[in-house]
Design a protein around this nucleic acid. Structure first.
Length: 136
DNA sequence: GCCAACGTTGGC
DNA sequence: GCCAACGTTGGC
């Protein structure tokens, strides 16, 4: 399955993720049930997009799930869980939100429809379209 | 910096 | 269990 992770680049950027290498990093800090439930569906080896919100608003890279959902180490509240991800490769060309919005094939993308959700599912068709738009 | 959308909290 | 108030996110 395919996913999308959204991050504010000043808090945790693609470069930060790349710097972690194959060790990867917890996708912690999620305090939203919907996003948590989506993370619970993730399996090792699944791929996801890495999206920069705010100023850039672009899909910038591809990540791989390297650990399934487990308790979030940044809180004692056992309601919250996270997965671990590692950077796989950057997109050749970032795919901007505007590009997604203007492509009819992506009209139903969660990124377009529910902008506030920080962890999202991506359909295989959407995955291919974004790779195409990113020349990747 | 503003505001719309949405999720969460808490009083009743 | 409902709903108003509030806080947060993220696009513009």
């Amino acid at each position: 399955m395919y996913w999308l992770f959204k991050s504010e680049p000043n808090a945790w950027s693609w470069d930060d993720q790349v710097a972690k290498g194959d060790t990867g990093e917890e996708w912690d800090g999620v305090r939203n049930y919907q996003a948590r439930n989506i993370m619970r569906q993730m399996e090792i080896g699944d791929l996801g997009f890495f999206y920069h919100s705010q100023k850039e608003k672009s899909v910038v890279g591809i990540v791989e799930i390297i650990a399934p959902a487990h308790p979030d180490s940044t809180t004692n509240d056992d309601r919250w869980e996270c997965v671990d991800i590692k950077a796989v490769r950057a997109l050749k060309n970032p795919v901007t939100l505007a590009m997604c919005k203007s492509d009819p094939r992506l009209a139903d993308m969660v990124l377009v429809k529910n902008t506030r959700l920080s962890v999202q599912p991506i359909t295989p068709a959407e995955w291919d379209v974004i790779l195409e738009l990113g020349n990747s």
